[in-house]
Design a binder for these strands. Structure first.
Lengths: 351, 351
DNA sequence: TTGTACGCGTTATCAT
DNA sequence: ATGATAACGCGTACAA
């Protein structure tokens, strides 16, 4: 297969390479006829400009990159869609790139920037415990957006961030359970490592109990199995079974992710327990599916679309020099659905 | 911010550029001491090789690309994971790229190949109605893998494909419903355009009914709403409501995707209909979630992991010249769960 | 073992 | 309006 270059096309048309270049890139200073002839032969021979060569020359590319850590997260999918739309509106190209779990996001970012000459970066997911020094090496502005953890040591001037305060929001939903009269509240928590979102949500749970003088019962803290992927339904299912087997009684179960809650729902059903009559169940995230389970799931909804939109807008504003770096924290929204019930008799009807 | 090039590093170390190049690329013919010194200064100055320049020189990159059309599809996520693993095992790099709905996959593929000098391509999703002529322009082998439609006009020598015969498998699950004694079987179908997977699955439904002499009732064919995204739970929910409102009676409902079925499950529940006592419900796809609904969902499971694995293996084999192009068609697996029930009284206990 | 010099395919600058 | 040519940053043949 013959792969023509710009030179070949030039020769074929009997013109210089620069003329061909002008034709390709819609430059104004070219004779329409020449251009047409060139475009014809380009089509005929199936010429495709080499992007590497282009990027090599280019110093600026009216494009941004979105770097995702953890592509399995359904949140990111919906965020990407929104970001994509926003980029289109601004006539920016969007380069999507996937970072492996063991890769360093900043390193990858640097490479991509060099390669594609981008104007900015959006980080989706991943923890962000990088040193300021390292972050400063990134020559383009970037926004760290996550439905997940809020970074510590915020370096206000080095980058922007869009996040939800997991610990605080997690406490809120536990407070809600407490307000319903629950005191024996079990928690299903995955990946409780330092700085992880699981850990943060667990801390929120502890905060809420403490604030209401409810003693922490370690037996009610169910750390999900590490072999299974975090935040999977399977994991929620298995862990709930384990929790039930241990025999400690509880009236409410809080799963730190909706996916876990959905697995839990099934496990409770199989154990003959009715939700919410026997056990109240609450999730966290606000994924679409939570609306369709039977019973539908009480959860904390993270404003994903809004966050994605603002992330993009913020990045473009920074690129345009319209604003400094910002750190925006969103509130999640308590969505009360069918899976939770008050223990106070007089309230029963309202739920 | 100073962005050093290979020349800068060379100067800094007092060596030639080729020596630096050798150091970077782990060439054997270099003095270990020189190499160490070079690597040190590289670290110190934060030098990052420019990938565009590299790709420009390179003629072959021990890498493949995965081009996804429709990133929202949860299947692809699990397929990507598997493909990624396989690539790692073979020490191949994997370039993930996302094709927009309105983009031409072959065009994108050509660009990516030129840019990255890849050895092969995996197409995930998308219809594949490209002319042979166009396909031949792709200079590297490619495998078209889909849980979805099986391409017409198979050009056996131009490319490979891995697929499931949607029409046939769809007929199977309808046959199963028929075998349970159902004759008034409604279908929830999305995106019934020509050649789409929705259409194919609908045809399978028609095939099965016809084969059993059951007359097609147009009122029981519920085309989901186009405004909503295809195959979403919301769509399944809304469409089922519409179907129920139209008043036509049926004993079984077949949703051409599990996501639709999950929405349907909720709609049926809200209408006071019990599954499977009042209505049997069947899905298609075999997504993870189908196991956790209450009741769990009878569905046709597509062997996603296996397909992904074989897709990768096939591509590597073709690259290595070990095999010709192949067209493999997988069977889906009927997973009988709680959502379907026999109408024959004597069988009730078995379900 | 190391350095020099060329070329990869393109765009931009400068003449013409 | 068009063509020649110099970069862009890197790998590599070849010479040393």
């Amino acid at each position: 297969m013959f792969e023509p270059t710009i030179k070949d096309i030039a020769k074929l048309c009997g013109v210089g390479v620069s003329t061909v270049s002008r034709a390709i890139n819609d430059h104004p200073d070219i004779n329409p006829e020449t251009k047409e002839k060139i475009m014809d032969t380009i089509r005929e021979y199936g010429y495709i400009p080499n992007n590497s060569a282009r990027n090599l020359k280019r110093s600026d590319a009216k494009a941004i990159a979105v770097l995702i850590k953890g592509i399995a997260n359904p949140f990111f999918i919906s965020m990407i869609k929104v970001i994509e739309q926003e980029c289109k509106r601004k006539h920016y190209a969007m380069e999507l790139s996937h970072i492996e779990a063991d890769e360093d996001e900043v390193d990858v970012a640097q490479k991509v920037v060099k390669e594609k000459r981008l104007r900015g970066i959006i980080f989706l997911g991943g923890l962000f415990s990088h040193s300021d020094e390292k972050l400063k090496k990134l020559s383009v502005p970037f926004v760290f957006s996550t439905v997940g953890s809020i970074p510590e040591n915020i370096s206000r001037n080095v980058y922007s961030s869009i996040s939800v305060d997991d610990r605080r929001e997690s406490a809120k939903i536990v407070e809600y359970l407490i307000s319903l009269g629950h005191t024996r509240i079990a928690i299903l928590v995955a990946e409780a490592e330092e700085q992880s979102i699981g850990k943060l949500r667990l801390e929120g749970y502890c905060d809420a109990l403490r604030a209401h003088g409810i003693e922490l019962n370690p037996k009610l803290i169910c750390e999900t199995r590490d072999e299974l992927s975090h935040f999977s339904m399977e994991n929620g299912y298995q862990s709930t079974k384990k929790l039930l087997e241990c025999g400690e009684s509880f009236t409410a179960l809080y799963a730190v992710a909706d996916a876990l809650a959905i697995g839990a729902l099934r496990a409770l059903y199989e154990a003959g327990l009715r939700v919410p009559e026997d056990i109240s169940l609450a999730g966290y995230d606000g994924i679409d599916m939570a609306n369709y389970t039977v019973p539908s799931l009480t959860t904390m909804r993270q404003p994903v679309e809004e966050m994605a939109k603002d992330t993009t807008k913020l990045l473009f504003d920074i690129i345009a020099g319209k604003t400094q770096h910002q750190h925006i924290i969103y509130e999640a929204e308590l969505k009360i659905k069918e899976s939770t019930k008050s223990l106070h008799k007089q309230h029963t009807k309202n739920l």
